[in-house]
Each structure stands twice: as C-alpha cells, then as structure tokens.
C-alpha cells in the first residue's frame, strides 16, 4: 500500500448531510461519535464543511426542494470523494413511499442514488452506530483505491 492509499484510508473526514430524514439516522450518527463508539480511534472525524470532507453521509428521502442543495454540496467536495447512503429512506424511500406503487410521494426527490453516485449503502431504520462506522470504513477503502 502506497503512501497515498494509506493516507486516504487512515484519515476519512466525514460530512453529514441531512436530507429530509426523520432525524433518527442523524442522532445515530451523533451517537456513533460518542465515547462508546469513538471513531476517532481510527481517524474518523466529523467536519461540518463539505470543502474539507472526504466522505458524505446522506440521510433521508431527498425532498424535491433539497435536490439542488444536495447536488451543490456534492460538487463542493474536492475529489476523491465517496458517498454513504444511511438508512432505508436514503436507499429506497422507506416508510415515506406511498403504498400504491404509483411512484414516489409528491415531495420525494428520489432516493439518493438518483441524484448523486452512492458508494456504500447502510440499511436500517435507523442503522446502528456500529453499522454506520463500518460503512464509513468501507467507503474509506473505496476512496483509497480512487485516482
């Protein structure tokens, strides 16, 4: 493993984008930072600035109003970058999908992977902090192999 790969794997800086979720995943991400899980052991730190971040954690169905902001935030991140979709809503729309299979709800801008490329999916409603940290490490491994 070269210096480049090693550096990228060792220091994934994370940015949390809340896109019309119910907060459940958000507080589990906050819980993943707490002393019980402490991802700083392996160098994961939460940075609230997309310009500084390597990995974006996206949560929630993306409301139509949110789509341009999510795209913009993704563009603001310098390459290489990775995206982790957290929770059922970000992956499929989850409980906020209407029953009648006539497509998404009237405010849903689509699952995250319709808007920006997603590298890692972490399912659950909400996923446990362990799963979120695992997703971040998997994203860091993907990141380290990028050009």
């Amino acid at each position: 493993m070269g210096l480049k790969q090693k550096a990228r794997l060792y220091s994934p800086w994370v940015f949390h984008a809340h896109c019309s979720g119910c907060n459940g995943c958000g507080i589990e991400i906050a819980a993943a930072l707490n002393p019980r899980y402490d991802p700083e052991r392996i160098g994961v730190t939460l940075h609230n600035n997309p310009r500084h971040a390597d990995i974006m954690l996206v949560e929630g169905i993306v409301a139509k109003q949110h789509v341009p902001f999510l795209k913009r935030t993704y563009d603001q991140m310098p390459t290489p970058k990775a995206v982790v979709a957290i929770g059922s809503c970000a992956i499929t729309g989850g409980v906020f999908k209407p029953d009648d299979d006539k497509g998404p709800s009237y405010t849903q801008g689509g699952p995250v992977d319709r808007i920006i490329p997603v590298d890692v999916y972490v399912p659950g409603c909400p996923p446990k902090p362990e799963a979120i940290i695992d997703g971040v490490i998997k994203a860091a491994i993907i990141l380290s192999k990028r050009e």
């Binding site: 896109c19 409301a63 109003q65 709800s105």
Partner: peptide, 15 residues
C-alpha cells in the same frame, strides 16, 4: 424550511 417536507399527513390518509 420545508426541506424536510415528507407529506406525512397525506401519507397517513392513504394508510
């Protein structure tokens, strides 16, 4: 606001 608008009340009227 309205970035989190998920239409819960509307969905509830269909369930």
């Amino acid at each position: 606001t309205g970035f989190n608008h998920r239409g819960v009340m509307r969905l509830a009227e269909q369930r």
